[in-house]
Write a protein that binds this DNA or RNA. Structure first.
Lengths: 153, 153
DNA sequence: GCTAAGTCTAGTTTGAATATAGGATATAGC
DNA sequence: GCTATATCCTATATTCAAACTAGACTTAGC
């Protein structure tokens, strides 16, 4: 399960990417539009900024803006900002690399070997799909269903 | 991150599968051998029994035994006994299916679409690899490294 | 019926996730 | 330089699940 933080981040970034005509966004506006607690979103956007995904300006007329094009931001980069690396077991974490307590020999640990494959499988999805891809897929589904409704009428 | 429960379960089952000559195992024996808190392991083995992976007999001479051959038990079946289905977001969970709070339209939610791919990727690994496979890979790594040591000498 | 085992119920403890409050800091416009 | 606006930062509450423990109950073999 990914955290609310990650979900809120994806929703907030989705909102921003869907409105490319706007130069900057207020926290309060995004919070309102996407139904995210404002104070919580504050911390989330700050994290995204510190990870180079957003930029910000203080003061009147300020706000947040995308630091990169949506097509160059992977879902993996976003999620990892909050979940750390997505290691299914501690001993596979590169940041915070602590060998699993009691995992005898790390090199030959069967659990570790299998989980390395899992980690690889997850990354191959999340590091391939971009924010733009996500929105495009969503839009595609929306239109597909719209058509069905049209036919029904 | 998988829970300690899952890790302990994998270790316990690994121990049992590595000693096929034994007909049954005491909780205390497994706990000792694998360094698992005995009372905690108690609950874990019970869960594995309720999921059809282990069988048990009470009383003197009793204990736990594998209910199936290690080659027919997938890592997915073991892990899912403790983690539920491995849905990365609530709305993808089949048991406990509750739509994510605030996830507007579930059919067109981009987050859900991407996470469905992630879920699929994870399952394709965990439902393919069996307990026997895991031990075999571990043994293979062990021998590979053993050879390197031999050459070094 | 004694003892060795698993089974069940009910806790405790700890830590992380979610969220909020309130002030500090920066900047635009006058 | 004052004020309004907005982000930035620190601290704290709250809630919940994970990890683990205690102790009584049940079953089976001798």
């Amino acid at each position: 399960m990914i955290s609310m933080r990650s979900k809120y981040a994806l929703k907030a970034l989705g909102y921003m990417a869907r409105n490319p005509e706007k130069e900057s966004f207020l926290i309060a506006e995004i919070a309102q539009a996407e139904g995210i607690p404002k104070k919580f979103l504050e911390a989330i956007l700050l994290t995204l900024k510190n990870n180079g995904i957003l930029s910000s300006r203080k003061g009147p007329g300020g706000g947040y803006a995308m630091a990169k094009a949506p097509a160059t931001v992977t879902i993996g980069a976003i999620v990892r900002s909050f979940e750390g690396d997505l290691a299914p077991v501690q001993c596979l974490s590169e940041t915070a690399h602590a060998s699993c307590p009691e995992c005898g020999d790390e090199d030959t640990c069967g659990i570790r070997l299998v989980m390395a494959d899992v980690s690889q499988a997850v990354s191959s999805v999340l590091d391939t799909v971009t924010l733009a891809d996500m929105l495009q897929r969503s839009e595609f589904e929306r239109q597909k269903r719209q058509q069905v409704v049209d036919f029904a009428i």
